[in-house]
Structure formats: structure tokens, C-alpha cells
Amino acid sequence: MSSIFFWRKKREEEKQASGSKVSDQTTANAELTAATLPIRSSKKGIRSLFAISKFDPDDLQTLEEILLQADFGLSASEKIVAAVKTEAKLQGASTESDLRKILAQVIESQLSSDKRELNLSSGKLPYVFLVVGVNGAGKTTTIGKLANWLGEGSWSVVLGAADTFRAAAVNQLATWAERAGAKLVGPKSDGQDPASVAFEAVETAISEDSDIVIIDTAGRLQNKSDLMDELSKIRRVIEKRAEISEVLLVIDATTGQNGLSQAKAFAEVAQVTGIVLTKLDGTAKGGIAFAIQSELGIPIKLVGVGEGINDFAFFDAKEFASGLVA
């Protein structure tokens, strides 16, 4: 899989250049055209679980410890080790390399999800992405990268700067918008209600016939109920004008078990549809994302692997699993 296929709106010039390109695609909407975008590999960011510590094939307790050190958490680690044990018994596997293979299979199968891809195929444009998360998780950077990638596929992208709280967050997003060639809709005055900024961004996207609008929100800790209420308000207000196709929760790969609490709270308030696992280029393994998916069923969709505009990738369970055991 080297590219991903989506629908986007036809540009004016494409409309004039006859619909032949579209005819082979089954779509009811002649306004749409197929867009393909290069998929990016997340291999760069995945480090082996066994880079520092090895496990003893005769004592799978050691494997559990390695998983714990990768932030999988007690519950998920125990579950994985139990599954590996069962499978090893079935297959009569006992060597380290066999066990590693089994481990990879277990992780991959538990991460499998049919909701992995970004929801860019409904044809109901503009697609609205809402990006949420705690402070410092990497929301703005993620949006910059995503906008740039979409721009590569000739999408017209609007970014809504609804983080009106953090000093200069709007400027930070503006810089990314410029780099990615996206249009920025920001607050007209300092401290403008974030929900109204989000609304205006969606309005702009509709009136300008854009394909997608990505709303940046202020970082908020999940136990701050007033800020979480604000988030549900943003959601409600957007939905007055358009369907929300993705709510992406950005989780820092270095996050520990609090990630579960984050995912639970954000899922409840904002109806999260996918996880973006950022900062995987560090030493952190991001096991918490596994715990989140296995406990809450929210799929990991994207990963961030650096500060560069191209440093992001689509999450691939197989790639992730085999990278972890490499």
C-alpha cells in the first residue's frame, strides 16, 4: 500500500476538463474526484522493545516487564503475555525468535481495526476534523503536518485556530498554515470564544467550497470539567453547520497510564474517533496507545515521528507490531 484513496471536490479546471477521470469511480456526486495521497511509513518511529532489555524465553514474566516498560500498563501487559503463552503452547514454540513472532501476531491482532483509515470518503464535504488533547501533546504540529499532506493531494484546506487560550497558539498554527498552503481562520479578537472561531472556520470552508476544515483546540487536562464542557460546546456548534467526520485525540507517546484517563474523558465529551500518537521518534514506545485501543476500542490512526512537516504516518498495526519485536 503506497497510496491512500479519498474523495475530494473537483477544482473548477477539472470540472471543465470533462468527467472522464471520474467515470471509472462509482460516485453519485459528479462534483467529486478521486484523490490519492502517498502513504507514509511509521517505521522510522518504532523502536524495538528489546533494544535494551532481553526477555528470557523460559520465563515470560520477563516479557511482561518489558511490556510494562513500554507503557502498555499492567492489565494490557498481563493480557498480552497470557495470549503469547497460550499461543506458544498451541504451536509448541519455545525459542526466542518464535516467541517474538507470536508476540508480534498477538499485538497486531489486538490492534486490528476496520476503522483505521481517516474518514475522508463519505463524500459529504467539507470534511470536518476536530483535534483535541491535553496540553503539549502536539495538536498544532499534527494539524500542520496533516494539512500539508492533504495539500499535496490538491485538497483545499481550512485551519480553524480555536485555541484562543495559549499565548501565540494562533500564530503557531498560522505558521503551519503558511507552510502547508492552507487558509487560516483565527479569532477576530483576543480571547474570542473558541466555539465561535470553530463555527466561522466551518462557515468559511463551506462558502469557499473547501474540501476539509481542521479545527485546532486548546490543550486541556481531562479533569478540568469547565474546559471539557467548552469542548462539547465546540462540537455542538460545529454540528449546526456540518457533520464532524473525525475527532482526533492527540496522545504524546511518552504518556504513561494517564493516557487511559485522557482517552476515556475525551471520548465521552468529544466522541473521539481516532488516536494520533505523537513523538514516537523519541525513546518512548507508546504502549499506552495499545492499552487505549484494547480497552476503549478507539483505533490509532496517525503517528507523529518528528518535528518536520513530513514527519507523520498512518498507523499500521503490522508495521507497529513487527517494529516492536524487531
Binding site: L68, Q69, A70, D71, V134, N135, G136, L221, Q222, N223, K224, D252, A253, T254, T255, G256, Q257, N258, G259, Q262, G282, T283, A284, K285, G287, I288
Partner: peptide, 29 residues
């Protein structure tokens, strides 16, 4: 909110920059 990686990160900064003290952020979470 940092997880298990805290040890690696701390060692890296201790070796790389030489820290004198630590500040814990986002403790209101």
C-alpha cells in the same frame, strides 16, 4: 503524565546537559 520513558529521558538530559533540579508540570491533571 510522563510514563516509563521518564528514566531514559532523565538520564539523557542528565548526561547531555547536566541538570541541577527538576520541575514537575501539569500537576493539576
Amino acid at each position: 503524565m510522563l510514563g516509563q520513558d521518564a528514566v531514559n529521558v532523565a538520564k539523557a538530559f542528565e548526561d547531555g546537559v547536566g541538570i541541577t533540579a527538576v520541575v514537575l508540570s501539569k500537576l493539576d491533571g
